[in-house]
Design a protein around this nucleic acid. Structure first.
Lengths: 198, 198
DNA sequence: TTATGAATGACCGACAGTCGGTCATTCATA
DNA sequence: TATGAATGACCGACTGTCGGTCATTCATAA
């Protein structure tokens, strides 16, 4: 016989070895040759574990996003008001935190790829991400309603809010602007409409 | 001395000759060689009029968008209610019109490019497009307020609405879903909030 | 020894972009 | 009016890059 490697583990190892590289070079400027070199394997070997460049980039980015989601879950209960909780949910977009910048850059490129690929796993994963955020947001809103802070109609606005956030994000990129404050203002306006005044 | 051609005109001619080609092949699958062949010139000549592929693709798409904007202006006064006018403003996204499909596909790819380019003219043009829609939307809302159909607070929602539309569009693509109905529902909810009930 | 599968890097094709050269036109001059 | 020098439009062969492939080699278990 011959050596049998744990394909799944090696896959993760290769991807894991390239986290930094991806953040540093971005998707477009990342070459398979570099990936192979960084992972300490031959170029051909990369293709024994991934069927194309998109797949390996996706593997790395998925890890990034899943980590970020875990982070969200771990921190979200520190927030007090409903609005604060909502804002924190969109922290990835709103945060001014420096170290996040490279992640944001890569995510921008990822979105770009997403818009021109037909890769089903990618679309599927994006749906999962939406669902993840969606469930948390729905919870937050439910709690707010139960606490008597906001009106029932807020439930119907969650969908639009999530889409608006993505819209602000994409337009900020597509037009070379910083729209964080505008998004916060928009949330303020929404809350003015749904908050129960005392 | 020598022949002097109208550089601007020829630029437009080359771009104009490739409208159909771009719609047919999309941005990524369009090659400079094909562009040259279609325009009836040599490959090198393309580079006498455009500095790179992005530039020529941009030239073609800009024409598409400007035509669509002219269309919007020509048709918008046919609408009656404020909500109808708003919906029509987002017709490019909401329309089920078959012939628009290829334009939408190309626009999706254009947005994709937009998200990973640093090309200033492109970002600049995107800002102009936003302003164009923005002004019309503000007008529509103003008229609605004057007619007593909707509340003043609507003015503060226009920004978010425009972003939400783009969000629905992008997410629909990024998640492989059709979100037209969801967007319409969202608009319905917004109008419920801002409409002055009789 | 041998069968098996992992690993490899030389190789390939596609494509954006470059560059040295050609050719048609124009016009100054004899 | 004939000529030839100057100009710039035009061209496609060529280069460099990069994603992806495949024939071959190598290591190990039986």
């Amino acid at each position: 016989m011959a050596i049998i490697v744990d394909k799944d583990k090696k896959r993760r190892d290769i991807a894991g070895a390239c986290n930094e590289l991806l953040l540093e070079k971005g998707i477009k400027n990342l070459t398979i040759t570099e990936i192979a070199k960084t992972a300490g394997i031959g170029k051909g070997t990369v293709y024994d574990y991934f069927s194309n460049k998109e797949e390996i980039v996706f593997e790395i980015i998925r890890k990034f996003i899943e980590e970020h989601q875990a982070n969200l879950l771990g921190q979200s209960d520190k927030m007090t008001s409903t609005k604060q909780k909502v804002l924190y949910l969109f922290d990835f977009f709103l945060s001014e935190h420096k170290p996040y910048e490279k992640h944001l850059d890569v995510y921008r490129e990822y979105l770009s790829v997403t818009l021109s690929t037909k890769s089903c796993p990618m679309l599927e994963f994006n749906r999962e991400c939406s669902s993840f955020i969606r469930e948390i947001l729905d919870d937050i809103i439910d709690q707010g309603i139960k606490k008597g802070e906001i009106k029932d109609v807020a439930r119907q606005l969650t969908d639009g809010l999530m889409k608006a956030e993505r819209g602000y994000m994409v337009i900020a990129w597509a037009e070379g602007q910083d729209l964080k404050q505008e998004f916060k203002d928009y949330i303020d306006t929404l809350f003015d409409l749904i908050e129960i005044k005392k």
